[in-house]
Nucleic acid binder design. Sequence first.
DNA 1: GTCTTATTTGAAATTATATTTCGATAGTGG
DNA 2: CCACTATCGAAATATAATTTCAAATAAGAC
Lengths: 155, 155
Amino acid sequence: MLDRQDRQLLEWLQGDAGLSVGDLAEKVGMSKSACWRRIQKLEESGVIRQRVTLLDPEKLNLPLTVYISIRTNQHNDQWSEQFREVLADIPEILEVHRMSGDLDYLIKAVVTDMPGYDRLYRQIIRANLSDVSASFVMETMKHTTALPLTHLPTV
Amino acid sequence: MLDRQDRQLLEWLQGDAGLSVGDLAEKVGMSKSACWRRIQKLEESGVIRQRVTLLDPEKLNLPLTVYISIRTNQHNDQWSEQFREVLADIPEILEVHRMSGDLDYLIKAVVTDMPGYDRLYRQIIRANLSDVSASFVMETMKHTTALPLTHLPTV
DNA sequence: GTCTTATTTGAAATTATATTTCGATAGTGG
DNA sequence: CCACTATCGAAATATAATTTCAAATAAGAC
């Protein structure tokens, strides 16, 4: 069970993984050692998954984000597993979700430009897909990795 | 311009923001101080955006991810700006993109369950939207924040 | 080529931070 | 009230970040 202080720590850490234990301790009002142990526990328990560095896609020559919707007529496990492995190895592909509803998979990818998208497209359709359609991101109006902590059971 | 060593540093840091300068220095084969300065420059130049902590949605009672597609008949700047502000303040909403093609906006959100989605839906449709449809994530097959460094101009 | 200048480097010193230790405190069940 | 357990804070120790400075390297200018 996560108490108020754990939540506060998580709130701060979601925004900045580089904060020192000392800073955090001050922010949530406890000693450094208590704070440090809290963080350890949050890591051990898996609430904290990992600490990552986010880069600027534009600066990496990846200004175009695309969502690719896929329908397939292949629905067996073996095909699905192979599809997963292919996509896992393509670094431009950031997310792959199996979806409810009329589309089967939704993919998020980053590319340099339209020719870049076309190269990606050609890789993907090697699998047996009945329908592939792309929507391009014109403008990202919000983008955060911070999850709300408001749905936890009350202490 | 990012040379081989910068790229290697970024590669490692994307995977783990918690690596020490010493470890990184060893991995890419340079001294600690050189390594430290490289990282500073990458931060100053904005290639490194931020370091964040990723949490486990399930452990936060947010097992359901949903993509919400929106069409609207409102296309003026003022409406758009207001829409943005409303969405920015809803913590369950992680991403909002203005899209090309037949849908206007694509939203990614996390919720506890279907009633949770319904509450979110009701908040969103307060805006003047002509069409809102949801697709739920059954299974996330890939999810990374690491961008490919393979599209940078060669040194 | 070689001189000059501006960058970048590595080792060592310094400063700051993470981690451990240990005794004190507070809550729990019997 | 006592024994037990979990948590705490302050201080000690171990690691790591940051700065300093002299040497090495790269980039032009001629």
